[in-house]
Simulated scan of single mutants.
Amino acid sequence: MTGQIEARLAELGITVPEAVAPVANYVPAVTTGSLVFMSGQIPLAGGKPAFTGLLGGGLSLEDGQAAARLCGVNLIAQVKAVCDGDLDRVRRVIRLGVFVAATPDFTDHPKVANGVSDLMGAVFGDIGRHARAAVGCSSLPLGVPVEVEGLFEIAP
């Protein structure tokens, strides 16, 4: 039987990929008690960056939001792996940290972060509402414009 979250993903037309293995010396997630601390996810699709560049330097706000949304899909893939495939074990999206690679004059970091925040709300409903930080930086791994880390609460 398909769970509620899987059914919601299907309604939204979202396919969650397999969780991506780390590319350096870290683990994708650390669970302690009911909390899952997720390593930063970048906008990978098919194992390659779907977006590269800087916000305000060739990439539009809409590009940034789409990149943030894809980071969110990859976060969902990671938490799904932690939950042994059962996304209904997610009890709360607690916090998201959104890093935005941008030119010095770009100031719409919160609007970029809405790409992932809106996704979490659409997929998880009220339990997808979360605390958040959105910060600018000069560069991110593989030249991507957005990276998102997360903190989730899960049921045993």
Rank of each mutant, 00 (worst) to 15 (best):
A45N: 09
L75A: 07
V100L: 03
G136F: 09
G128W: 10
A131H: 13
F152S: 07
R69E: 05
A155P: 11
L87G: 06
A77S: 15
V135F: 14
G47E: 07
A122Y: 12
R132L: 05
A101W: 01
A131W: 12
V144F: 04
V27K: 12
N74C: 00
G143E: 08
L140M: 08
V20E: 10
A131M: 14
R91C: 12
G115R: 05
G58W: 06
I14T: 07
L140I: 14
K80Y: 04
G46L: 15
R69H: 11
G46T: 10
L87V: 07
L9G: 00
F37M: 10
A10F: 02
V20C: 08
P49S: 08
L35Y: 14
D84L: 12
I76V: 12
E62S: 15
A7H: 10
V23Y: 00
V90E: 00
P145R: 02
G128I: 07
D86I: 00
K80H: 09
T32M: 11
L35M: 15
T52E: 09
P28H: 01
I42M: 08
R8A: 02
L44F: 05
A155V: 07
P141K: 09
I154K: 07
L12C: 12
I42H: 07
I94R: 08
A50M: 05
A102S: 10
A29M: 08
E62F: 09
E18M: 08
V116W: 01
E147P: 13
M1A: 15
P110S: 03
G121N: 11
G58D: 05
G56S: 05
I76R: 04
D108C: 06
V30T: 14
A134I: 01
A21F: 04
L44D: 09
Q78G: 13
D84Q: 14
R8E: 00
L54C: 02
A81R: 09
I127S: 06
K111R: 15
E6D: 14
V20N: 05
T31Y: 01
G64S: 06
I127E: 01
D86G: 01
E149P: 10
T31G: 06
I76E: 13
I94P: 10
S138T: 10
Q65G: 07
I127D: 00
V20H: 04
F51N: 03
G53S: 09
P104K: 12
R95F: 08
V27P: 02
V148F: 00
A21Y: 03
C137E: 08
N114W: 01
G47W: 07
G115S: 03
L96H: 09
L44Y: 04
N74T: 00
P22M: 06
T32V: 14
L44R: 01
A10G: 01
P22C: 12
P43F: 05
P43L: 11
R91E: 15
V30P: 07
L87E: 04
G85W: 02
E147H: 08
V79A: 04
G150P: 13
